[in-house]
Nucleic acid binder design. Structure first.
Length: 460
RNA sequence: GGGGACGUAGCCAAGCGGAUUAAGGCAGCGGAUUGCAAAUCCGUUAUUCCUCGGUUCGAAUCCGGGCGUCCCCUCCA
């Protein structure tokens, strides 16, 4: 597949370093609050990338961190008067509650900063030894002036950044753009011992250390939201390559577009955000997934409840088809239709999910009449196979085989009896009665559809 | 001040110099089907892609100006 690489500003052919093994590191959350829609979008995109790469025959080693110690965590923990670890633990478990509900695949491992302090200290020491960092009053800073290619990811020069004027000069730093690898502890803050005294890791160092520890050098994909390009990934890149060597850290830097709300970036700090859980409570997770994947991952997305409603309606089309297909047997020998190859081509083109969804809907439209006719058609099992493959790649839930359940079996029988009687009324043209039955059932969520071949029903 | 992205039908949204009727979804309209609904299918809804120029045999797609919107340069997915 071709994948856009922020470093080269180009769609490059994705070929993992180790042939069929793709190593992917995704920047995780700082667990001090619930995830919002923007987080949901980001992890959804990596979930789909993960699913697609696997379907392309790669094994994918996905690592995603939790930054479980930093200023925001300390501040929030102080507000709530609980230990930082308790806060982080809580929101890590909330993270999984939301992401599991949303159908996001689990990464292979979720390393946490506080469990890697030794490795981080060791790594900082290496940066200092190499001459790219210096200690200053218990802090350790990366010296951007000593690292010539600083700015290569975000394509900015130091002069431009300083002209931005929002840098904070500190007497401790040699240059205002220098950033902390290690921060000395203020009174009352959590700390770990280090060669530079008591303190804690700076923001960017954890990703450098943990990605190198678990995935090694020259990993295939390192991703996150577009807001991480600078300073987070720029700094990560600098400090990492300062140790492992130029071009030895990451092969593909990928970044997803941000979610806006009322034409402004969704962000915790500004209060302009919607909690993911709130959406998951109000809409089908699959509908939300369809909505988000309807925009290309690199484009910004303005959150629009109206469009989400539309997607929810659109999703019933997929869902109904899947339900009807559950009665169709699997094909004796699987075969791919042209639609699947088109679908695959779309995703191979920098994960073009909107286009892939387009092919999926066209495929449904072409095959749906056969399904509704009710008579057996030998192409249906193949249709089923292909559609399910597509849905799996996009992460849409497949109707699992209804397990034997006495109660719901009884319910089915009761509804079938009602339908039988209602059809007798219809034969006798007692439509006011048959319509009343239909309306009543409808009001409790049982929808009757009178087809030529007979009446069928579904739950709304 | 510097860097970057975008502006496609009523709405959301693909399209990355040339099959082509400019995907797909939602909504609308007309039709088939139906006792009526629902579901499904067919047709229809942008001779045109913010605007003005330019390059080209050919541009929504490339270049320049204008108008508008957003992001990054600060914690952030």
């Amino acid at each position: 597949m071709r994948l856009y690489n922020t470093l080269t500003r180009n769609e490059d052919e994705f070929i993992p370093r180790k042939r069929k093994m793709a190593r992917m590191y995704v920047c995780g959350v700082t667990p001090y609050d619930y995830c919002h829609v923007g987080h949901g979008r980001s992890y959804l995109i990596y979930d789909v990338l993960y699913r697609f790469l696997r379907s392309e025959g790669f094994s994918v080693l996905w690592i995603q961190n939790f930054t479980d110690i930093d200023d925001k965590i300390i501040n929030r923990a102080n507000e709530l008067n609980i230990p930082p670890k308790e806060l982080a633990d809580r929101f890590i478990s909330e993270y999984f509650v939301d992401m599991d509900r949303f159908g996001i695949s689990r990464a292979f491992l979720y390393p946490r900063v506080t469990e890697h302090i030794d490795e981080i200290v060791e790594f900082i020491s290496k940066v200092v030894e190499k001459g790219y960092a210096y200690e200053s009053e218990g802090d350790v800073y990366f010296s951007v002036r000593d690292y010539p290619s600083y700015g290569k990811l975000s394509r900015r020069s130091l002069e431009e950044m300083i002209a931005g004027a929002r840098v904070d000069p500190s007497e401790k730093k040699k240059d205002p753009m220098d950033f902390a690898l290690w921060k000395s502890a203020k009174p009352g803050e959590p700390y770990w011992d280090s060669p530079w005294g008591r303190g804690r890791p700076g923001w960017h160092i954890e990703c450098s250390v943990m990605s190198l520890l678990y995935l090694g050098e020259e990993i295939d994909i390192h991703g996150g939201g577009a807001d991480l390009i600078f300073p987070h990934h720029e700094n990560e890149l600098a400090q990492s390559e300062a140790v492992v060597g130029d071009g030895k850290f990451v092969r593909f830097w990928t970044h997803n577009g941000l979610v806006n709300l009322r034409s402004e970036k969704m962000s915790k700090s500004t209060g302009n955000f919607i909690i993911l859980r709130e959406i998951l409570n109000s809409y089908r997770p699959e509908a939300f997934r369809l909505y988000l994947l309807g925009t290309h991952y690199r484009s910004p997305l303005d959150f629009d409840p109206q469009a989400l409603e539309d997607a929810q309606r659109a999703y019933t089309r997929i869902e109904d088809t899947l339900k009807l297909l559950s009665h169709i047997p699997d094909p004796p020998s699987p075969a791919y239709d042209q639609a699947f190859w088109d679908f695959r081509d779309a995703l191979s083109n920098d994960l073009n999910t909107p286009q892939a969804i387009g092919t999926l809907f066209s495929y449904i439209r072409e095959n749906r009449p056969l399904l509704d006719k009710g008579n057996w058609d030998p192409t249906l099992p193949i249709f089923k196979f292909n559609l399910i493959r597509m849905c799996e790649i996009l992460g849409f839930k497949i109707e699992e085989k209804t397990s034997p359940d006495l109660e719901s079996d009884k319910l089915r029988e009761v509804i079938d009896i009602i339908i039988k009687i209602r059809n007798k009324l219809r034969e006798e043209k007692l439509f006011h009665l048959s319509d009343e039955i239909r309306d009543s059932l409808n009001s409790i969520g049982v929808i009757l559809e009178d087809m030529k071949e007979g009446t069928r029903w579904k739950m709304s």
